[in-house]
Design a protein around this nucleic acid. Structure first.
Lengths: 258, 258
DNA sequence: ATATATTGGTTCATTATATGAACCTTTGGA
DNA sequence: TCCAAAGGTTCATATAATGAACCAATATAT
């Protein structure tokens, strides 16, 4: 593996729950030698991708990532477009709705809106990675995304997050097949207890899915009627979002979706 | 220079005006060998920092940068905080207002809002780099930011954007000194013809400036009265923004600002 | 239809850079 | 005051980066 990929892999370790990482913690997380780590971190810092907390010396993501995101957004204004549709669905279904894009080890939400005014709320960290095998978004992405994705998704041991998480590749593949024939993915308590979700893909200029739209809700609030409503809302949003970004819904999905 | 920094330097080449870059264009821009470039680009692609336009094969920034920005924003919610204050000032002064953070070769706007309802508008590309030596934001950043910044800012030949741009280090240093004693930076037509701007710093947890707030306006609309108003508005916004992000305005600035 | 130019991508011997064990420095408690 | 833990540095060795030459695919001109 190239030095570049090793160094960029360090950036992947940051998350909403782990926003700052010290040298020794990097060593614990990666097993790489301190000397090597220090040089990598210094390079990333020199390039503005990291900065150091002046008091603790711990590293955190630097301002360069903000500029990169802004440039990317001028090229492919996916966040801006997704935002409008997610907000609209969130308001109508009064639940947590999010749009996500595939990353290396799972999907990452690019925008989330909780339209819920009611008691229980699904907690959601926008900066968290949603694993492919244990979330409805992940299953939807595997079902309708690039085939290369499945290979990388199944290359590591699948982690169990709840008792219901499928950790066998064959089981997950079955879920993916179900999603393919249904036109959407449904999952219940695979990732977090008490939470179930519905997800379906949206499409960009190349034929396969660019990302997903999903609704998450406490299992207690879910029933057949709401599920149908969710699917209808998401299908509508996906059609519009895909059109906004110059994509097209594949024929077989057009017939499956309401 | 490390391989990591060379590779990340490639990402810097993207901008609002140059959102996609092909292999040969990278070669033109950097002078680096194609073989080397190709491996670097492949590594960046494998890490999700680049993706390829499926038809043209040209590279563009990938979805990983969106996740990085989201994580950074959960750590240091600078965009979110700046947004509120910029919007307020933009509405009050009815001009283009922006907040910017230092990068390697200049500042990069993290948010901009044009409150102008009137005829002429200052055009602004959020993903563009604002050079340190030729913008009010840049001068303000050099005046109140970390001293290490000046070294890197003056390490390369200074580019002339208009007839008025100072390309001699001594001239720019004079502008910086003026900004230090005035508490703000003013520049007219140094970067773009017909445009002048006022900028001042805001502060984070460490003592030196974290970024800048600025107002840009056509020179024809500028006068002494408006300048005073701009400074007052920006000073107020900077105080509030700095407080929001846990920073403090240095004593000498507190006395200079209205 | 055929030649030519341009672009993206690959190979492999050479060379420069990355690596990590051991060592030093600073900081913050017992 | 000592100790432990964290950040950081050094330098011989091993490994990965480099770039000239080459190949393949596509677009353009003859």
């Amino acid at each position: 593996m190239s030095t570049i990929e090793k160094a960029l892999g360090l950036l992947e370790l940051f998350s909403g729950m782990r926003p700052e990482i010290g040298l020794t913690e990097f060593k614990r997380l990666t097993g790489v030698d301190k000397g090597t780590l220090h040089r990598h971190l210094t390079s990333l810092k020199n390039s503005g991708f990291l900065e150091q907390n002046p008091t603790t010396k711990a590293y955190r993501l630097g301002p360069a990532v903000l500029r990169m995101a802004a440039v990317r957004e001028t090229t492919v204004p996916i966040v801006k477009n997704a935002k409008a549709h997610v907000d609209r669905v969130a308001k109508r279904v009064e639940e947590l709705v999010h749009a996500a894009l595939p990353q290396k080890n799972g999907l990452s939400a690019i925008y989330a809106m909780d339209g819920g005014a009611r008691g229980t709320r699904v907690s959601f960290d926008e900066a968290e990675i949603l694993p492919y095998h244990a979330t409805s978004s992940g299953i939807a992405m595997l079902a309708f995304g690039d085939t290369a994705l499945s290979k990388s998704a199944f290359s590591n041991q699948l982690e169990a997050f709840t008792a219901a998480t499928s950790t066998a590749t064959s089981e997950v593949e079955k879920l993916v097949e179900e999603a393919k024939s249904a036109g959407y993915a449904f999952s219940s308590e695979l990732y977090e207890a008490e939470v179930c979700s519905v997800a379906l893909p949206f499409f960009g200029q190349n034929g396969s899915a660019m990302g997903t739209l999903a609704i998450a809700t406490p299992v207690t609030r879910m029933n057949e009627e709401r599920r149908s409503q969710f699917i209808a809302e998401l299908a509508n949003a996906s059609k519009n979002l895909s059109q906004d970004i110059g994509g097209q819904i594949p024929k077989q999905l057009k017939t499956l979706w309401p």
